[in-house]
Design a protein around this nucleic acid. Sequence first.
RNA 1: CCAGACGGUCGGACGGCCGCGUUGAGCUUUUAGUUCACCGAGGAAAGUCCGGGCUCCAUGGAGACAAGGCGCCGGGUAACGCCCGGCCGGGUCGUUCGCAAGAAUGGCUUGAGGGAAAGCGCCACAGAAAACGAACCGCCUUCUUCGGAAGGUAAGGGUGAAAAGGUGCGGUAAGAGCGCACCGCUGGCCUGGCGACAGGUCAGGCAUGGCAAGCCCCGCCUGGAGCAAGACCGAAUAGGGAUGGCGCGCCCAACGUCGCAAGAUGGAUGGGCAGGCGUGUCUUCGCGCUGAGGCUGUCCGGGUUGGUUGCUUGAGCGCAUAUGCAAAUAUGCGCCUAGAGGAAUGGUCGUCGCUCAGCAAUGAGUACAGAACCCGGCUUACAGACCGUCUGGCUUU
Length: 111
Amino acid sequence: MSAIRKRQDFLALRNGRKAGKPGFLLVSRPNEAAGEGVRIGLTVTKKIGGAVVRNRIRRRLRAASREIFPQFGVPGMDYVLIARKAAYDRNYEALLDDMKRALLSLARDTK
RNA sequence: CCAGACGGUCGGACGGCCGCGUUGAGCUUUUAGUUCACCGAGGAAAGUCCGGGCUCCAUGGAGACAAGGCGCCGGGUAACGCCCGGCCGGGUCGUUCGCAAGAAUGGCUUGAGGGAAAGCGCCACAGAAAACGAACCGCCUUCUUCGGAAGGUAAGGGUGAAAAGGUGCGGUAAGAGCGCACCGCUGGCCUGGCGACAGGUCAGGCAUGGCAAGCCCCGCCUGGAGCAAGACCGAAUAGGGAUGGCGCGCCCAACGUCGCAAGAUGGAUGGGCAGGCGUGUCUUCGCGCUGAGGCUGUCCGGGUUGGUUGCUUGAGCGCAUAUGCAAAUAUGCGCCUAGAGGAAUGGUCGUCGCUCAGCAAUGAGUACAGAACCCGGCUUACAGACCGUCUGGCUUU
């Protein structure tokens, strides 16, 4: 499991499959170059809030993804989480559940 | 004890589980991975408004001009438009003196606080008039056709943010610094103070308003850009320069050169044909493109993605002593305190603290806000707590 850092890679995800949840929008796309690894990127736009709010959202989503992705992420896929405002104070258990369901629904669509 | 103002300090704590970044040490086979340890956001990290350090660029010295900024005095500072102390003015409240105008003094508050007799400009509305010293009403004198007209007058009315020093007495046709007293103002001199200024004294009746945060004048200051500055290393691909190798078919031909001529020779940013490539299933044939434009070796320089560096020890922080009203400075001792880069410094659960509501159980809230080269300031945001000074109220003695 590694992070997506380059702008080019983020742009490539733009047309991927999407699954929306209260706290975020999950986008996925198969990645030929990466092989078997799962790559995750985070996007938190300025529209959502100040730096403090954005940092907290980024950390919560990152912490949640660490718990969920090793088990439910599909190897060889790139994922991008686009944050929404609700991620700031949504119940953590609900956030984990949202993420699990989003991954499952994307995996079903791919088949 | 309560409330308020001002100044200063702080701005949650502990534990479990799961994680991240720098550094150090160890282990594994180098790459990399892994284990342990240490450290890991702010008072404003914010706004990016001033002042510097640092870096690159520009620059011979000095002056002038332009543009921008600053503007009472003294001190502090690396520097500042910041800070400290002082001076002067405005507003407001109280006290004292005075018939009054006004003055003195204390508290709070406030001032972009140089120049308005260098010049230009502006002063809305209202008002007669907003500066050329001004007559609307009123007042007084003269004349009168009894409607008013001419002249004098800034005491009174009215307008306004602002109306031509104020109060009182005299004076006068009515008035007026016209005269006088007091208050205010302006100028000279003397004294005190480093100075801004203050006090005293003499003179002047003292027409010549306000705005300089409109232009302007005077004095002082200022080169430009910023860590995405700058330095180094440099993959693949494309492109640039130098140099070498291979290849560069045929015909026509403008024109050039040589020649007395015949002719010879070179031959284009020209034309045609071979040849090559593509295409319709293939051949023939046709169409399109191409037709020396090529292929390749070596070296050089620039340079993108990326990597390394700049990158945290500094006008640093704490304590003590000394000097100073203070800002601050000096000396001594101690300390090392984030360095990321799609960007670490956390996520989650529990217990407690604090504030508010409630008799209680309990419930609700726990701010503003996230380093990005580094300092000194300013400004703005902020739940709550603590300390000090002052003011007011209540209770007790």
